[in-house]
């Protein structure tokens, strides 16, 4: 899982209002170089939550991103290189993404985060049975489920 994906994910457990950013628990981080594409980076910059990216990259062992960034910095090669490296070259291979509000862990195994929720974590939103029942048994059920005192605040 690269940090661009981390920047797009949030916890959607029922009752959670502050599900972003997910806290990273890093057990194994690898670097895989890819070609830099300034146009893509400029496109993505506006969509990225900068603080979440900075914090995540530090947990992954990369501390070179500046605390603050603005679009004018995209003209600087040095900044682009750092942004590129943090966003697209650092991979979380083993570890977890942790919901900031409930501490529920979403495991990351062999680089792939598992965002599936269990039946009791879902909003009751549909009459039809769905995915929950079909959640393959192989997925981890070892996390500690915390009681949510929060009331259901969204529809």
């Amino acid at each position: 899982m690269r940090l661009i994906t981390h920047n797009m994910l949030s916890s959607n457990i029922k009752g959670v209002t502050n599900g972003f950013p997910l806290r990273i628990e890093a057990e194994k981080v690898v670097e895989k170089p890819v070609e830099i594409d300034p146009k893509f980076l400029k496109n993505m910059f506006v969509k990225i939550d900068w603080k979440a990216l900075v914090d995540a990259s530090r947990i992954m062992g990369y501390a070179d991103l500046p605390d603050e960034a603005n679009p004018s910095m995209l003209e600087l090669d040095e900044f682009l290189q750092k942004f590129h490296h943090a966003l697209l070259e650092l991979h979380l291979e083993e570890g977890a993404l942790v919901c900031p509000q409930t501490d529920r862990r979403f495991p990351v195994i062999k680089g792939i985060p598992n965002m599936l929720l269990h039946e009791d974590e879902l909003f009751l939103q549909r009459g039809v049975s769905h995915g929950g029942g079909g959640t393959p048994k192989t997925q981890s059920r070892t996390f500690k489920y915390l009681d949510l005192n929060t009331s259901l605040s969204c529809a």
Partner: peptide, 12 residues
């Protein structure tokens, strides 16, 4: 991402 359709992606 292992997800039910796009779980976890709906906001961001």
């Amino acid at each position: 991402i292992i997800a039910d359709i796009a779980s976890g992606l709906d906001k961001r």
